[in-house]
Every structure is written in C-alpha cells, then in structure tokens.
Amino acid sequence: MTTEPTSATRPRNRRQLIVEAAGRLFSERGYHAASMEEIAARVGITAAALYRHFPNKYALFAECAHAMVDRLVGALDELPPEAAPADVLAALVRVTVEHRASGGVYRWEARYLDREDRRLLRAKFGHVVGRVAEAVRREGPLPDERLRVVAALGAIGSITMHHTSIAQRRVEELLLACALRVVATAPAPATGSKHSVELPALPVARSRRAEILAAAVPLFARDGFANVTNGQIAEAVGLAPSALYRHYPGKVDILAAACLQAAGLLAQAVDRSLHEVADPRDAVVALAATYVAYSFEHTALTSVAEAEFVGLPAELQRPLVQAQREHIAVWEQQLRLARPELDPRQARVLVHAGFGVVVEAGRSLRWQDGPDRRAAVTGLVVGALGL
C-alpha cells in the first residue's frame, strides 16, 4: 500500500505558512488588492486547498491581523512577572523583527476588520501595553507612563513598515536601545520656540477638482479607500457621480492626488523648519517638531497617505516613493551630523522609529491637538533618535 505524495509531503504547519504568506501579501498590497489565488500561489498550494483552511479572505485576514499581537502576548507570557523593562522590550523586539515582513498588517489594514475583531485586537494590544507599563513602573515613576510605552511600541513596530536592509542582530540592538530611551523620556513642556511650528495651510478649494479632493480625504480616512464609493464623494460636493469623471479619471486618481498633496505640504513644512538652522541637533529637533505638528494638524490627510499608499498602481506610486526618499534623506543627513557614530542604515532605521513614535503616540492621544501634546510627542521622538 502506498501513501499519496501530497499527504506525505504536506507540512504540519501549513496553516502557519499560509498566515505568514498572507500577512506579507496584505502588508505589501493591502487587504483589498491581495487575492486568495495569489496567497495560495505563494504557499505553493491551490486555491481550493487554501479554502480548506480558511472559508474566505476576511477570515484569513482577521487571523493575520491578530497573529502579530498574539505573538507579542505569547512572548511576554514566557517572561517572569518581575522581568526588567530591558528584558520585556527585548522580547517584543525579537518577535517583531522576526516577523518583520508580515507584522505590519494590524497597524494600518486592521481598519478593515469588523467591530468585534477590532475590539479583540485593542484588548490584546492593551495587555501588551499594560505588561510593559508594569515593568517600567517598577523602575521609577514618570508622568504619562502609557504614552511613553505606546510610543516605544511604535518605535519597535516601525520596522515592519519599511524595507531598510540591516542585519537582524544590529536592528534588534538598535530598536531595543531606542525603545528604552523612549520609555525613560519625561514628556517635554511646551515652552520655548523650538516646539513652535508654523505649517503651510491646506490650499483653499477654489476649483471643483480641489473641492472633490477636500471632500474625499475625510471619507477615505474614516471608512478606508476601498469602502468609499464615487457616489459618496459626489454627494459630498453636490455632484452626480458621473460628473466626477470630468475632473478625475477614477477614484484611485483622487487618492493619488491626496498622497501628492500630503507629500507637498510636508516638503514645504520641512523647508520652513530648516530655514536658518545651522546646528545639526537643532535641525533634528526642528524636523521632529515639524513632523509632529504636521501629523496633528493634517491627521486625515496624513493617515490616508500612509495607510492607502500600497493600494496605488505602481505608476502612481513612483513620484510618492521619490518624495518619501527625499524626505527621509533630509532626516538621515541631519541625524548623522548630530550622531556621527551612526551609519546610513542605522540612521534610517531610527528615523522610521521616530515616525512610528508619532503614529502610535498620536493615536493614543486620539490626535487631540494642543501645544503640550505636540511638545510631549516631539520630546519622545527626540528621545527615540538618541539626542
């Protein structure tokens, strides 16, 4: 009697392999752009075999979104209750770096989860935050403990959101040191001019095309690009859906225009912030304050540009990728002047960690703006960068 080759060679961890492959694809292309057929092909199985493990794409996506947080919870549960902050954060760094390619799904794509899955995800993340906070608290009290912990987790999680090539051990050491600095950073008061930022304003919508863009951005931010219809956008500006096509070839072109607008505003803000700033450290602080101010003031536009970028066709992504590279290059240059011991890759990882601090700290504060909040988050970014 012979055994079928398929059963003999079928890996016992096939479900895990599927989740890893799906997580990578969802991270690369977004939930709606990824297909079950592509996921099956990456695993090396048929679509029919994939459906034996998951009844539909949403079920697979939900498991991917929970997988990273479950790994973080599991890593913490293996530690003794009295573990020091360095040991707690090191465990989270190891898991995050190990699953870098698939671990970013929950940060942006989780908005496509249903209400119950979002509630469960928040509860699990809350458990992680609480465990880190307990360890930090034992080291001594500092104000805004939860904000500092969430910001440190944002710094760690940032590694899932970019492709900088760097050895695993080096990046783990870099992120651990970064996270430890963040949890030890006392929030800065909103005093002095270094946190005062004058941003370029959104352009006034003087044309129908501009009105459409201004109406679409908050809809994309609230519901996700894929869930917003042309009818909703048209209704918001008092047009028939067919009239949109006189101004934009399609909905994706509205998204591309929003991303370009975000990149343009940020570039203008950076130029202003660095005007007549000579000292590299002052330049990095100015960049941090500007990025924080920009994120708080243009929250909807920023979140759309960051969350929906992967859903754009390659030809529409190119100018945005170039703008992002130029922006990061400015940070990298100033940070390396302020910290000459860093090589380009280390500096780039830290810059992205700073962005991660802003994202998670801002979310924790529900993007409720104010001078003290901007100053506190700016101080955490500066701490993350090691200044």
Rank of each mutant, 00 (worst) to 15 (best):
T2N: 15
R10F: 04
V19G: 02
E20Q: 14
A22P: 15
E28C: 01
E38A: 09
I39G: 03
A40K: 12
A40D: 00
A40E: 09
G44R: 14
A47G: 10
P55H: 05
K57S: 14
Y58G: 05
A65R: 11
A67W: 03
A67V: 12
A67R: 11
A67F: 06
L72M: 14
V73H: 00
G74M: 01
G74D: 08
G74L: 06
E78Y: 06
P80L: 05
A83I: 08
A84R: 04
A84Q: 02
L89K: 01
V93A: 03
R94Y: 08
R94M: 07
V95R: 08
V95C: 05
E109I: 02
A110I: 08
F125M: 14
F125C: 08
F125R: 14
V128W: 00
A135H: 04
V136I: 08
P143L: 09
E145G: 05
L147E: 00
L153H: 03
H163C: 07
A167W: 10
V171Y: 04
L174C: 08
C178T: 10
T185E: 10
A186Q: 04
P187Y: 11
P189Q: 09
A190S: 14
T191H: 15
E198W: 14
P203D: 07
R206G: 15
R209L: 12
A210G: 12
E211I: 13
L213D: 13
F220E: 10
R222S: 10
D223C: 03
G224I: 00
G224A: 03
F225A: 04
N227Q: 13
N227G: 02
N227R: 13
N227W: 09
T229Y: 09
G231H: 11
G238H: 11
G238W: 12
L239V: 07
L239N: 03
A240Q: 02
P241D: 05
Y245E: 04
H247Y: 15
P249M: 09
A258Y: 04
C259L: 05
L266Q: 14
A269H: 02
V270Q: 02
S273Y: 05
V277L: 13
D279M: 05
A283T: 10
L287A: 08
T290G: 06
Y294T: 01
S295W: 09
F296D: 05
F296M: 02
E297Y: 13
S303Q: 15
A307Q: 11
A307D: 06
A314W: 07
A314Q: 12
A314E: 11
R318G: 09
P319F: 13
Q322R: 04
E326P: 13
E326F: 13
I328V: 15
E332Y: 01
R345S: 10
V351C: 01
G356H: 06
G356Y: 01
V357N: 10
A361E: 10
R363F: 06
L365T: 14
D369R: 01
G370D: 14
P371G: 01
D372S: 12
R374F: 00
A375G: 04
A384V: 00
G386M: 00
L387I: 10
